[in-house]
C-alpha cells in the first residue's frame, strides 16, 4: 500500500495539526498539570474502550454493552476493595474476571443461538443497567464505594515525575499510561501475530470458510466477546482510577467513544480487519478535540457537534481515498 493511502498517517497529521492549532490559540494547551496529564489519562481510558469494541468488530460483531460490562467489572472491584480489603492487583483481577465472564456470556448466547450480536448485547445492556443501580443501592450509599486500596491514590494523582532516583526524575507521564500501553500492545500482538487473533479475524472475514478450514468458529466468537468484556473491565478500572472512585456512573459514556476510536482508525464494521494503532490515534484525536474546544470555552455538550463533523469528514475522506485507489488500481 502506498504511503498516502494509509489512513493512520492522515489521522496522525490531523492530530498534530490540531495540537498545533490549539496551542496557538490557547498556550495553556501545553500546560502540563492542567492539560497534558489529564489528557494522557483520558486518552488511556478511551483507547482501551475503543479496543474493547474493536475486539468484536474484528468478527463483524458489535458490543452495545461495553459501558455496562465496564460498570459491572468496576462494581466487582469496588466491592472487593471495600468489603474484602484485597490488594490493588487482586481486586483488579477479580473485576477483569467479571468483565471477561460477561463478555463470554454474550458470546456464548450469540454463537449458540445465532442471534445478531447487536440484539444480544443491547438486551444485555438493558439488563445490566438495571442490575448495576440495584447493586450499588444495596451495597453502597447509592453512589460509590468508600474503601479504596493502597496505591489507588498514586495511580490517580502521580506522574513519573514524582518518582526520582537521586536527581533524575521520570517524565511527566501519568501512571495509567503504561497500563493502557500494555493493553494496546497485547491486543496489537494478538491480532497481528497470534494464531488466536488471526483465527478470530478469519472468522470475521468469512465464517463458513473459517469453519471449513478447521477453525473452531464458535469458540473464537466466545473468545472475542470475552476479550471485549475483559478490555471493557480494564477501561472501567482505569476510569475509576482517574476519578478516584468506583461509582455507578462508570461506563455511562463509553458507547459512543467505543465506536469513534476504531471507526476513525479505519477498522471496518464488516469484520476481518482491525487497526489497533488507528484506534489509539482515533481515541487520541477525539480527546484532543474535547480538551482543546473545552479550553476555548465551548460547552461540553456542544463539543459533540465538532466530534461528529470530524468523524464524518474523516470517513468521507477515507471513502474518497478508496475510490481513488480503486481507479488507480484499475488502470494498472
Amino acid at each position: 500500500m502506498p504511503l498516502w493511502a494509509n489512513p493512520r498517517l492522515g489521522l496522525l497529521i490531523l492530530l498534530v495539526a490540531l495540537i498545533a492549532l490549539f496551542t496557538a490559540l490557547r498556550p495553556a494547551f501545553m500546560d502540563v498539570t492542567l492539560t497534558l496529564v489529564p489528557l494522557q489519562s483520558d486518552v488511556s481510558v478511551y483507547a482501551v474502550v475503543g479496543l474493547a469494541q474493536l475486539a468484536v468488530l474484528s468478527l463483524g460483531h458489535m458490543n452495545m454493552a461495553v459501558g455496562r460490562m465496564a460498570a459491572m467489572s468496576a462494581f466487582a472491584m469496588g466491592l472487593a476493595y471495600d468489603r474484602l480489603g484485597v490488594s490493588l492487583v487482586t481486586g483488579l483481577l477479580i473485576g477483569l474476571l467479571v468483565g471477561t465472564l460477561l463478555g463470554a456470556l454474550a458470546g456464548l448466547v450469540i454463537s449458540r443461538t445465532g442471534v445478531n450480536s447487536f440484539v444480544v448485547t443491547l438486551a444485555m445492556d438493558f439488563a445490566l443497567v438495571g442490575l448495576i443501580t440495584i447493586l450499588y443501592t444495596r451495597f453502597t450509599d447509592g453512589v460509590a464505594f468508600g474503601g479504596l486500596p493502597a496505591g489507588m491514590d498514586a495511580l490517580r494523582n502521580d506522574t513519573f515525575a514524582d518518582y526520582c532516583t537521586g536527581d533524575v526524575c521520570g517524565p511527566e507521564i501519568s501512571l495509567v499510561v503504561p497500563l493502557a500501553l500494555v493493553a494496546v500492545l497485547a491486543v496489537g500482538v494478538l491480532f497481528r501475530f497470534s494464531r488466536l487473533g488471526r483465527e478470530i479475524l478469519m472468522t470475521g472475514a468469512n465464517g463458513r470458510a473459517a469453519e471449513l478450514s478447521g477453525i473452531p468458529v464458535r469458540s473464537r466468537v466466545v473468545q472475542a466477546h470475552a476479550l471485549s468484556g475483559l478490555l471493557a473491565g480494564f477501561a472501567g478500572f482505569l476510569l475509576a482510577a482517574n476519578n478516584g472512585a468506583f461509582s455507578a456512573s462508570i461506563g455511562d459514556a463509553f458507547l459512543l467513544p467505543s465506536f469513534l476510536g476504531p471507526v476513525l482508525g479505519g477498522t471496518l464494521l464488516a469484520g476481518g480487519a482491525v487497526s489497533v494503532l488507528g484506534t489509539v490515534l482515533g481515541a487520541g484525536l477525539t480527546q484532543v478535540i474535547y480538551k482543546g474546544l473545552n479550553l476555548l470555552q465551548f460547552q461540553l455538550d456542544q463539543l459533540n457537534l465538532y466530534i461528529g463533523l470530524v468523524l464524518l469528514a474523516a470517513l468521507s475522506l477515507d471513502r474518497v481515498r478508496h475510490v481513488v485507489a480503486d481507479r488507480k488500481g484499475a488502470r494498472v
Binding site: L256, F259, L260, V263, L269, A270, Q299, D301, Q302, L303, N304, L305, Y306, I307, G308, L309, L311, L312, L315, S316, R319
Partner: peptide, 27 residues
Amino acid sequence: ITRINGFVVTLATMTIIEGLRYGVNGP
C-alpha cells in the same frame, strides 16, 4: 453517496445533532 455503513453514518450524525440540540438553548 459515501457508501458508508448506515450504522456509522447515523453514529456521526447522532453526535452532530447532539451538539446542535444543545446549541439551541444551552442548558
